[in-house]
C-alpha cells in the first residue's frame, strides 16, 4: 500500500493546530507517535512493501514523524504558555500585604518631637524636669510677686504635701514649664540653649478649649551677649522650619513677669495665608507662643553675677500647636485616647 503522505501531513497539522488543551494534545501524541500509533503503522508497512516502494515510504515516514514531533512540541509550548498566563491572572497583587502591625505615637508626642528636633537642629539640647514644684521655682524666682493672682488656689493646684524648703508653704503642680529654667540655671553656668517639654497643670474646668492638664515646650538661651534682635531672628527661623518658608511673623509686645521686653508671636495663618478664615478667626494671624528677654530679676534669683548674662526665653502650648496644625477642634480628644483617634 502506498501512503498519501501529503494528506497525512495535512490532517495531522489540522488536528494538532485545532487542539485546545494539554490533555487533548497528549491524546494526539499517542495517536500519532504511540506504540500503536499512525507513525508505527507506517513503519510497519515497510516490511510488506515492494523494493521500489520501500525508500519512498521510509523517507515519507521519517518526514512525517519529524513534522508531527515538531508541531506537537510547538503546540505544547503554546498551550503551556497560555495556561501559565491564565494562572498569573488569578494571582491578585492588589490584596493587602502582610506585616507586623504598626502602632502610632501620640499626636502630642509627635508635635513635641517635631518642635524639639527643630530646636536641636538650631543647636539646642532637650531637657526635662519635675511636675511637682516649689512655689519658689514656679513663681518667686520667676519674678511673680507674692500677691499675684496666678498664685491663688483658683489658678494653681497645691498638694497637701508641705514644701521641704519652706514648711509654711505646700508643694504645687507646676503651672508652667518655666521652673525647669530655674533648676537648670541653679545648676549650670551659661552658655546654654535648652528646650523643655512637659506637662503643666491649671485648675480650669474641662471644655472644648480648656483642660486642667496640658503640655508646654519652654526654651531658654543664655550667654553673655544675647540681644533682643536675636529673639526675633531665632523664632522666625524656627517658625519657618515648622510652618514653611513663606510664613510671615508678627511680634507683639506683651507682658510676662519673667521676661522684659516680652512679646507674643503670631504667624500668618497657613490655611488662608493671612487673608482671614475661620481657623484664624478672620484675623489672618495665629497666636502661637510667648517670648521675651530674660528679666534680670530672674538671673538675680538664681544668683548669677549682676549684669553678666543676657538671655531669651520662649514658651508654647503643645495642644494649641497640634490643634492648629491638624485642625482638631476639641482639646479633650488628646487625653481621651480613643484608639480610632490615636490611629489617625
Amino acid at each position: 500500500m502506498i501512503w498519501d503522505f501529503d494528506k497525512l501531513i495535512q490532517e495531522a497539522d489540522k488536528e494538532i493546530a485545532g487542539c485546545s488543551d494539554l490533555a487533548a494534545l497528549e491524546a494526539l501524541r499517542i495517536k500519532f507517535l504511540g506504540r500503536k500509533g499512525l507513525v508505527a503503522d507506517v513503519y510497519a508497512s515497510l516490511s510488506t512493501a515492494s523494493v521500489q516502494e520501500k525508500p519512498l515510504i521510509g523517507k515519507g515516514a521519517n518526514d512525517f514523524r519529524a513534522r508531527v514531533i515538531q508541531w506537537l512540541e510547538k503546540k505544547k509550548g503554546l498551550l503551556e504558555h497560555a495556561s501559565s498566563a491564565e494562572s498569573a491572572q488569578v494571582f491578585d497583587v492588589t490584596l493587602p500585604g502582610i506585616a507586623p502591625a504598626l502602632g502610632r505615637e501620640h499626636i502630642l508626642s509627635r508635635i513635641i518631637e517635631e518642635i524639639c528636633t527643630t530646636f536641636e537642629h538650631l543647636g539646642f539640647v532637650v531637657q526635662d524636669g519635675p511636675e511637682i514644684e516649689t512655689e519658689f521655682n514656679n513663681f518667686t524666682a520667676l519674678n511673680i510677686p507674692a500677691d499675684h493672682p496666678s498664685r491663688d488656689s483658683f489658678d494653681t493646684f497645691y498638694l497637701e504635701t508641705p514644701d521641704p524648703d519652706n514648711k509654711n508653704r505646700n508643694l504645687l503642680l507646676r503651672s508652667q514649664t518655666s521652673p525647669v529654667q530655674i533648676r537648670l540655671m541653679q545648676q549650670f553656668k551659661p552658655p546654654f540653649a535648652v528646650v523643655i517639654p512637659g506637662k503643666v497643670y491649671r485648675p480650669d474646668a474641662v471644655d472644648a478649649s480648656h483642660s486642667f492638664v496640658f503640655h508646654q515646650i519652654e526654651g531658654l538661651l543664655v550667654d553673655e551677649d544675647i540681644k533682643f534682635s536675636d529673639l526675633k531672628g531665632l523664632l522666625t527661623a524656627f517658625c519657618r522650619r515648622l510652618f514653611g518658608e513663606k510664613t510671615r511673623m508678627r511680634f507683639r509686645p506683651h507682658y510676662f513677669p519673667f521676661t522684659e521686653p516680652s512679646a507674643e508671636v503670631d504667624v500668618s495663618c497657613y490655611i488662608c495665608d493671612g487673608q482671614g478664615c475661620s481657623v484664624c478667626g478672620r484675623k489672618g494671624w495665629l497666636e502661637i507662643m510667648g517670648c521675651g528677654m530674660v528679666n534680670p530679676k530672674v538671673f538675680e534669683a538664681v544668683k548669677y553675677p549682676k549684669g553678666k548674662y543676657t538671655g531669651l526665653a520662649f514658651g508654647m502650648g503643645v495642644e494649641r500647636m497640634a490643634m492648629l496644625k491638624y485642625g482638631i477642634n476639641d482639646i479633650r480628644l488628646f487625653l481621651e485616647n480613643d484608639v480610632r483617634f490615636l490611629k489617625q
Binding site: G123, P191, F192, A193, D230, K232, G233, L234
Partner: peptide, 12 residues
Amino acid sequence: PSSLPQIKPSAI
C-alpha cells in the same frame, strides 16, 4: 531688626 544668635555648645 532680626539677627541670628551664635549658639555655642551648651554647658548642659
